[in-house]
């Protein structure tokens, strides 16, 4: 039954834990079975189910790019039972991994286009997978200009500081706009909410796709702001988050109307979102 049992996690080991903020850590994992690791492939935007045995399982976005073949990363905020347990683990600990699950950002369709990423807080995690994919040497030529607008509550809450404040900034054809909600002494950058900053930056919609992830309320206002800037619904993608237990379309709790987010999501075009009942 093993090879076909989608509910059976595969043992994985935490290779490295990178503290991102006070309550977010990035866990770098490898599957214990070398063959399985070599065969692992995920797409940007897909999900993985992590197990802490004896505590439970929870679904997370994969935050590393598929181009990073040697590991799989998850950036996880300490929130509930499973995430607390994860945060107590150290490098070398074993966890369980199922997946990858769900659809992904349609990066084939994005070829030849400019990309605008809008993220809030831990919502940058799934976008990061795509950003690094697009910025990877082997893919960079396929895409145009990359704009990243990222905000968090405070300086401390900014995730992936190495990328946001340094790595991505240095990439050619890439602009990063960073903002925090309230002024702080050590912060010389922009202060204000993401949707407001977006209006200020006023990216043009021509030949561009916008990709959003963040808290539900931020997503809502960013979508409105983008439409005001002239983006059509077809140009906007977002990821939706619902509680999941199985990840494989059986347990029935991540439905929005007739769609299961674990199968037909988490990435939705705004046209599709408009057709879904507002129950997410």
């Amino acid at each position: 039954m093993s090879h076909e049992n989608p509910l059976l996690p595969r043992p994985a080991t935490i290779q490295k834990i990178i503290p991102e903020t006070g309550d977010v850590k990035t866990f770098r994992l490898t599957l214990d079975d070398a063959e399985a690791m070599a065969a692992w492939h995920h797409e940007p935007g897909q999900l993985g189910m992590l197990s802490v045995f004896g505590v439970g399982e929870a679904m997370f976005s994969i935050s590393s790019s598929p181009t990073k073949r040697e590991y799989i990363e998850f950036s996880i905020k300490r929130m509930g039972k499973v995430t607390r347990a994860l945060h107590e683990l150290e490098a070398g600990c074993q966890v369980g991994l199922r997946g990858p699950y769900g659809n992904h950002f349609p990066y084939e369709k994005f070829k030849g286009k400019d990309l605008l990423f809008v993220g809030g807080g831990i919502g940058l995690a799934p976008l990061r997978s795509l950003i690094d994919f697009v910025l990877a040497e082997e893919n960079r030529g396929d895409y145009g200009r990359v704009e990243i607008l990222y905000g968090a509550r405070s300086y401390d809450d900014l995730c992936f500081k190495d990328d946001v404040l340094d790595g991505w900034v240095r990439q050619p054809g890439t602009v990063v706009y960073t903002t925090i909600d309230q002024a702080e002494e050590r912060w010389t950058g922009h202060v204000g909410f993401v949707p407001a900053y977006l209006k200020e930056v006023a990216p043009t919609p021509e030949n561009k796709y916008a990709l959003i992830c963040g808290p539900p309320v931020m997503i809502k206002f960013v979508m409105q702001a983008l439409q005001k800037l002239g983006f059509r619904e077809e140009q906007i993608y977002s990821t939706l988050e619902l509680r999941m237990k199985c990840g494989i379309g059986k347990c029935g709790r991540c439905n929005i109307g007739s769609k299961f987010v674990c199968l037909e999501g988490p990435v939705f075009n705004m046209v599709e979102i408009g057709q879904l009942p507002p129950e997410f």
Binding site: S51, F53, V55, C246, K250, C251, G252, R253
Partner: peptide, 30 residues
């Protein structure tokens, strides 16, 4: 067909993972 997946820890580093019926009528379902 809705179910939940829960771990049961025996306290000696062994345990079970079970699935059990769940209901979309329950407050905590989603």
């Amino acid at each position: 067909h809705c179910f939940d997946v829960v771990d049961e820890n025996r306290g000696d580093r062994t345990g079970l993972r079970v699935r059990c019926w769940d209901s979309c009528m329950f407050t905590d379902f989603t």
